[in-house]
Simulated assay, not measured.
Amino acid sequence: MDNLTNQQHKILVLDANQRSALASVRALGDLPQLTIYTADSTSQSLAGSSRYSARYLQCPSSETDPQAFLAWLTKAQASDQFSLVLPVTEITSQLILLHHEQLPDVDLPFAPLDTVMQLADKSNLLALAKKLGFATPSSQRYDSTATLDISSLTYPLVLKPCQSTLYRDGAWVKTSVKVVKSEDELRAHLARADYLKNSAFMIQAFIPGHGAGVFCLYHQSEPILFFAHTRLREKPPEGGVSVLSESAKVNPALKILTEQLMSAVNWHGVAMVEFRIAPDGTAYLMEVNTRFWGSLQLSIDAGANFPKHLVCLALNLPCEAITPYRTGQRLRWLLGDVDSLYLFLKSNRKLSSKISRLLSFFNPFSPKTKHEINRWNDLKPAIFEFKIYLKQLLGLD
């Protein structure tokens, strides 16, 4: 790769309807050496609406039409000669890594597929964690539902597919982790989750407590950047996607565990390492997401600019020095927060809780809170998102 820092580079940010794609485009927008292209399967997109996207390309869906997507990417790379391609979803990144031989000119700032699957495959991760001496939930692996003896199980339990996405016969299947509280609930879930009939999964003990994560960037096995945040509100309210979050200090003990894990696989790229903290303080390793995360914009606002450091390192570009990021910085995904409020108010919670939640939603904006999509210097993504939201609300989509 050319070491000249004044060379102009074209990069392609894929999965442009993802909030993490928009955060990446905005984070990279002030680098004068870059021309940013964006792409997704819709005629318009969230990140493609940004003023930092020089050109938007509509492409086949990597999820529903993967072979057509690969053919499109081959032609796009030959035509535009991208210095770097940046997918932000697990499906797109794994698809490209799976077919790297037919995409020899496509450069990704990620580890090879074998390394990725050491962490992304939860049974491989569990074996590695045990080898490293990490605390892990009691688990039993099954190759299919045919080998599962339901009568021997105790509840609650966690049914965890070994992979969050499965690539079978040229198509993708999304899986889900399920906390199961009874045999009837388990049977109902197994009947719905048809993919479990012929794919590996684990039955794990349920660990009470709370979740904690460490976000990291590595470059050729070297740790570059770490970040942590606290989820303040989620959609759905009982646990899900973060709609209001706050930057926090990285827990030193969790950072040590993360470094041990990433060093063991010679990691390269970004990742989110998830732990479950039990009431006694034990940190159980749960899973690793080998991609950018939904609340990426929060780390950027706080001063931990993962996309910029990732791209600068990959392209040998000068980048600002890494300094301690700000804690207490908040990020709000407004329309996600609206959905979360609606779900909270329609639940069977106490009236006092609903009033408190309503008041917190309409609290005066804190100077430490920024809106994820709504930015005065880049308004078009917010307008695009609102139009899509309104169409879905009115059933016009």
Rank of each mutant, 00 (worst) to 15 (best):
L390A: 09
Q94R: 13
S144F: 03
M272T: 03
D15M: 00
P161K: 01
P381K: 08
Q44D: 14
W267C: 05
A382K: 02
T136I: 11
Q94C: 09
E101N: 14
L98Y: 09
Q18E: 15
S45H: 03
S49L: 04
S352Y: 08
A54N: 10
L254G: 07
P60L: 07
R187E: 12
L345V: 07
L390K: 12
K235V: 12
G213S: 15
L217F: 04
D40F: 04
N266I: 03
L232N: 08
P137C: 09
L98M: 14
D15V: 04
H219W: 09
R55A: 13
S49E: 11
F275W: 10
G240N: 01
A135D: 15
T165Y: 15
Y195M: 05
R330K: 10
L334H: 14
M202Y: 01
R291V: 01
F275R: 05
E101D: 15
A111Y: 10
F215A: 09
V214P: 12
N266V: 00
S49G: 04
T42E: 15
L358G: 13
I322P: 11
S340K: 01
I277N: 11
T64Q: 12
A271T: 02
N124I: 01
R26N: 11
L232T: 00
L14C: 10
V158P: 12
S340R: 00
V116I: 15
L296H: 02
A228Q: 13
L359Y: 10
T147A: 13
T74P: 02
Y155A: 05
L225F: 01
A68E: 12
S20E: 15
P156M: 00
T5H: 14
L46I: 02
Q204W: 08
L379I: 15
L95P: 11
V106D: 02
